[in-house]
Design a protein around this nucleic acid. Sequence first.
DNA 1: ATGAGTATC
Length: 768
Amino acid sequence: MSDNPYTRAPPLARFNGPSTSNKAPHPLMGFLSRTVKAPQVQKALEGDTNPFTLQPHTKQYHKILEARKKLPVYSQMTEFYEMKSLSDALFLFLNRIPQFVCYTDLPHTKGKLVACTQPRRVAAMSVAKRVADEMDGEHYPRVIRMPSLIVIPVPLGKQVGYSIRFEDMTEPGTTFLKYMTDGMLLREAMNDPDLNRYSTIILDEAHERTLATDILMGLLKSLAKRRSDLKIIIMSATLDAHKFQKYFALQKGETAPLFKVPGRTHPVEVFYTQEPEPDYVEAAIRTVLMIHRAEDPGDILLFLTGEEEIEDACRKIKLEADDLMNQDPDSVGPVICIPLYSSLPPAQQQRIFDDPPKGRSPDGPPGRKIVISTNIAETSLTIDGIVYVVDPGFSKQKVYNPRIRVESLLVSPISKASAQQRAGRAGRTRPGKCFRLYTEKDFMSELEEQTHPEILRSNLANTVLELVKLGIKDLVKFDYVDAPAPETLMRALELLNYLAALDDDGNLTALGGIMAEFPLDPQMAKMLIVSPEFRCSNEILTIVAMLSVPNVWVRPPNMRREADQAKKLLEVPDGDHLTLLNVYNHYSLNMHDKKWAYNNYLNSRALAQADNVRAQLQRTMERFEIDIVSTQDERALYLNVRKALVCGFFMQIAHKEGEKNAYLTVKDNQVVSLHPSCGLDTTPEWVLFNEFVLTNRPFIRTVTTIKPEWLLEYAPLYFELSSFPKGETRRALESIFNKGNRLPVGSTKGKKRSREQSTEVEAKRKRA
DNA sequence: ATGAGTATC
């Protein structure tokens, strides 16, 4: 938590104080919060003095202002301020207007802030930068660089700041417009449910329906009843603005005002196929080549679903396009094919902004750039110069199956809204064309209007814990924009209860309260919190950090054998969790050297991220006085780590069935195999897994061998044998249980142990 | 006998 900015004198004092040496009236003289009218704002915008910094407006400011005046939203200013002063609580908008809100809300005079949320970190950062320039805010004098961050923070205005994970670029008392990720605001709400530091909250890109935005909409709706002074603005780019408008109606028949700002794009002509295409990749390649041969100059953007598909298509298109050029050099120009997906290093991603290749001769056909992308190019990255879009109509989407508690990725048809968004990418610089590889009839009748909101497609264990921490008593009755399946909520509650984060009545326990403070899945938070009792919190901290970042193993297609050999050298036979620990420790021993990582086929960006996450988690541990301890003897240490893993992941155990590599998950009875990336050199009888992945077949990934008696000892409630389905697993556990009962008196038995853990946590909470 | 669409704390 940053310092509370409101203990300082409100900056308004400065406006009327002696610091304004000239006799000119203050630019905001006569402005009263929320009664401000457009002509007043217009005058302030045109004025010589920046009303927020009291510095003279710069030349650059006036230049930007002239450009802004041409935007549609500028001409609607009158309408905007009229409406804002007429209504009470809720506004819905279809474009970006946070600056205008500041002129009427005047948050700095009340010691408050206007918050504007974004689904993505990069957007929060870059929009803050742009708006800081538009408002002529003061800049910090230098670029702040953090060694292990992927994105380099931009110099930003003090009045306009941003807050994202790992970076709070705001200045208490000065910043009054704060851009932030939606997840960040949700975190803040956990410690300040009334969000008292904000006078207006703007949720941008609400149509994307991220998990955090959906939860925030529910919270803000009920918060509006408690805080009459709070203004809420929802910004949405698509049709479902009406859905939000209805959702936020405080009383029946009364709807929040809607304010539309037309976007500024060029027309895009849409074409459909006559017949459905049986093979969308083949059809996509054919269409791209057809465009290249027959259409006017202009770059092409093709949407495919994943890395492998994209790399494959890239090669094929390049080969065929080169062929075409060699056959007919007078009419077909050269191409470059650029793949684009999130796991590419930033330098590779930058290539999408390269210029298209030059024509082979001055008067010959010009070159063409072809970008082949996942749906990262649909929302997160915009490429100017695209004139042609090829849309096969598919993307990989997360689906959650609460019955077997598995999240997986499925190639699925996109929604109409998505298809429109994709088509729009062709019209950013001039009129364009979009080729849809499905029939118009299918578009009309088969595609859903909107992509299913994330809340309907996710495991909600984390979210439910956050909601309970926020004081939501009845999760089923919570006012969701779209309510998740009851079974999904039940699964989440069940997990949290077994982890002792919630008691049997669904109330938050002391342990649960601390778990919620960690930006981790509940299983990982639990094992981290109990790990000092196993004298390995230093190691569990590392493992949790490593599990929180993208895959650290690099396996280039042409160097697989070398990469696998390098991995072998780092593997610990007892399990992949220990291997991750080992990798991190070697990375540290080698002074976080990128070269070392590269030579050992490790992703240095992921390792740097793990470092960052580890430091953040360590700070949270210190806040709750969770000791960071270790064990000297390596054998004892590894044993302790495996026991601590069981305390968090006892619901993710598999038992070997038969002779082969076949495992059965405990209780859910799913037949699974060890993932080929698994580093165990044997197939032990009992294993704990981090992840269940469903690809061609069901796999368990990141696996460590455990002893069954630990299950009975550390998770006695879950392993209450009478509740078990009959079968080989139950028989095996029963025989362990009977053996265990004959142990000499004095060995720690399960129930006693868990009670010890909760008292320990209770004591920590009181001290914290 | 082989895999991660996109985000977030």
